[in-house]
Amino acid sequence: MSKPVKIVIAGEGGQGVQAVAEILAEAGYEEGREALYIPNFGVEQRGGVSVAFLQIGDEPIGSPKFAKADIVVALSERAVGRTFQYVGPETVFVYDTLAAPDEKDMPPEVKQVLPIPGVETAKKELHPRVFNVLIMGAVIKATGVVNLENAKKALEKRLGHKFAQNPKLRDLNHRALERGMELVGEVMQGG
């Protein structure tokens, strides 16, 4: 049985973590693959750490819960602490450099650590609002769960109505996607 890729993305409420996971899940599904996405949810409507659990594979996905992820993306300091439990020896751990944990707070056993300046890059080069799309690009590069074309299609499906009003937005989102892929590409080579 080929195992699905297991992804955890965590951040602060408002960072768009759930949207990223949902669009990736849609993209996987549109590729004809199996996908399962489940958000964490609690009594807090806003605030708190938002965690998205995503699995994409070629056979029907089993349990929505998993012990260790193939990739964990933590976008805030709190998110780093919150997602440790999903990091194991086979996990690629991606974090935003603004959320840089102390060395002692890093997961002890991990396959690879990829720090990326996501927040900063989005702010300086693009627009803070496309931060999550940049992260989506990072996840795609790190996992290969979907290809770039399908990711763009899924974005189109989700944001097409906004792109229609303002075509510049489409370009901005595509650049964010590609920039996210580049950021991961750079650190992957470096590491």
Binding site: E22, E34, A35, L36, Y37, I38, P39, I61, P64, K65
Partner: peptide, 10 residues
Amino acid sequence: DGYQGKMREP
């Protein structure tokens, strides 16, 4: 259950 209610799958 809550997982089934909230999760997405095909």
